[in-house]
Amino acid sequence: MTHGIEEQVRPAKAAPEIEQPRRRRPNLAPYAFLAPYLVVTGVFVAYPLVHAAVLAFHQTNGPASRAFVGLDNFRYLLTDPVFHKALWNTTVFALFSLFLQLPLSMALALLLNTSKGRMKSIFRLVLFSPNLVGQIFVGILFSVLFTPRYGLINRFVHALVGWGLEERWLGNPSLVMPAIVITSLWLWVGFNMIYFLAALQSVDKSLEEAARVDGANRFQVFWHVTLPSIRHVVVFVVVTSLIGSYQLFELPLALMPDSYGRGPDDAGLTVITYLYDVGFTSGDLGLGSAVGWLLAVIIFGLSLLQIKVARVAED
């Protein structure tokens, strides 16, 4: 009870104090608020980044022993046909994302854009739902869907075109990449569709109307009016999905667990699978870091490209 009385008295007493300038010294609060980030990023991002550059010039045998080898790691990667295969597979996958997945996402976004209300949000939710499932779980599920004779995909393709009931998608080198692409389509088409859909909704409808009145057909309106007005989002989605594609790892790993994601004839080997293999399975963290740096250079280049293209698009 006494506490309550004190509180009633306090405001009258405290008021004059507030009138005084409270602080002349620089405000330390922002530094305090940023301190956790600065510490964590210093120890677990900045230092490892530098350390990865050091490691890339060493050969290691597990974390304990290492020897300086100069540029040998990079020289090895330049000549290793297995690494070339990994880089090739990853690039092929990235091209599929660019020229198959994104157009499909855009098509679905266009189909949904003209509809309204409840149906739209239901379809949006359904098409997006695979993104709730982690890549590993998607891979596990699809590894069974591709089972010869009994798998859902084998049965579906057979019913549709009369081919491939007994096909071992994940055991046939020429079908491994298509299988990964099919899986990634199921997973990501709805994700990019959300971005395109949001952008399409902000397009000025009167511009499209004007073009149509001028006699442009549906495709011309899309190509000359709609697409240019959402170019920022398109650039953003293209670059983020390219960056994502170059980091493909978990899908093939869970699809083909017997070979740790490499697949028959290394047909499913990606850059990160290669890194995982040499760095953590074989224990050469130095070579692993070298692969990591090459991947970082690719991704950095793609990000720069985005900034450049975005600037051009601005004008």
Binding site: L34, A46, P48, L55, G279, L295, A296
Partner: peptide
């Protein structure tokens, strides 16, 4: 600081794993 943060977002996480692994062992 903000420039550094933007730059750090471009680093693929997988690049940090080999040195992090070594660090965690130590």
């Amino acid at each position: 600081l903000m420039v550094f943060m933007l730059g750090s977002m471009m680093v693929p996480p997988v690049l940090l794993f080999p040195p992090l692994y070594e660090m965690m062992v130590k």
